[in-house]
Write a protein that binds this DNA or RNA. Structure first.
Lengths: 136, 136
DNA sequence: CCTTGACCTTCCCATGATGGGAAGCCCCAT
DNA sequence: ATGGGGCTTCCCATCATGGGAAGGTCAAGG
């Protein structure tokens, strides 16, 4: 099949498929005489694997490692689990960070009248002195 | 003061100060005869405002709007609150998304032995068919 | 057989925010 | 006057993705 069909079937855009090939994340497929890339079902399978890893927030480099582990029949499941759990901690840390920002802002907004008056604790906070340390 | 001191005092790197100036987020400061940028206390104040907005996850474009609102004494606090709450929802949505990924992965990892054996439900899930729809 | 349109190819550019580093000038203290 | 640190501009890299141009290809229908 051509790249368009592989894209549709895998959920990875043709643009990205070419890119993944260029960085060596996936193997270069065979070509027709006219240089068209030709994919097999197994390639689509790999692309879906990549898609799933990306959807779960793994970087392309991490995805590269995951593919290697996937291909390596002799790897221990502990290796995979270790990588996965490290990523879980990353994700949770980032989520917590975003949540903290949201909470701070929500708190500031709660004290903002939100009416026609100009006074606003949100901007007042932003404009307050002290970068991080206390004491200007 | 020179850009280095403004950077230290505001918590914004000299590199970023120049960048913010180049995109018109902040005003171009006066220059010495030797083209050195000269900042006043008020400029540091603005830079700290930007820093705070960035720390709370606002994009530079949103920060631009916030500065405009900050400078506009006649704006209604409702305008600020609206922008802030929209951002809070953004942050919370992103946090929830990351949390969902983490939960999914944590769940998969929970079923992974994590020992010397090669079988791993994590990779098995990644390699499973079906992109998003059910049914291959 | 030729046209049309959908598909493919490569190549370059843009995003958003930031950092790194080079080449060259400037300023102050010793 | 010399040295070192700070300043200037300019270009490049990151990370993952999309947009689009210019040109070749293939299949279907007239």
């Amino acid at each position: 099949m051509n790249i368009g069909e592989a894209a549709t079937r895998s959920g990875v855009s043709a643009k990205m498929i070419r890119y993944y090939e260029s960085i060596g994340l996936i193997d270069a497929p065979a070509r027709t005489a006219a240089q068209y890339r030709v994919y097999a079902d197994d390639d689509v399978h790999t692309l879906r694997f990549v898609r799933r890893a990306r959807d779960l927030g793994f970087s392309l480099e991490e995805t590269r490692e995951l593919i290697a582990l996937w291909r390596d029949r002799s790897r221990a499941s502990a290796d995979v689990k270790k990588l996965a759990m490290a990523h879980v901690r990353d994700l949770e840390a980032k989520a917590a960070e975003l949540k903290a920002m949201a909470d701070t802002l929500r708190h500031l907004a709660a004290h903002c009248h939100g009416d026609h008056r100009p006074d606003c604790p949100i901007l007042a906070d932003f404009a307050a002195q002290a970068p991080t340390q206390g004491k200007a």
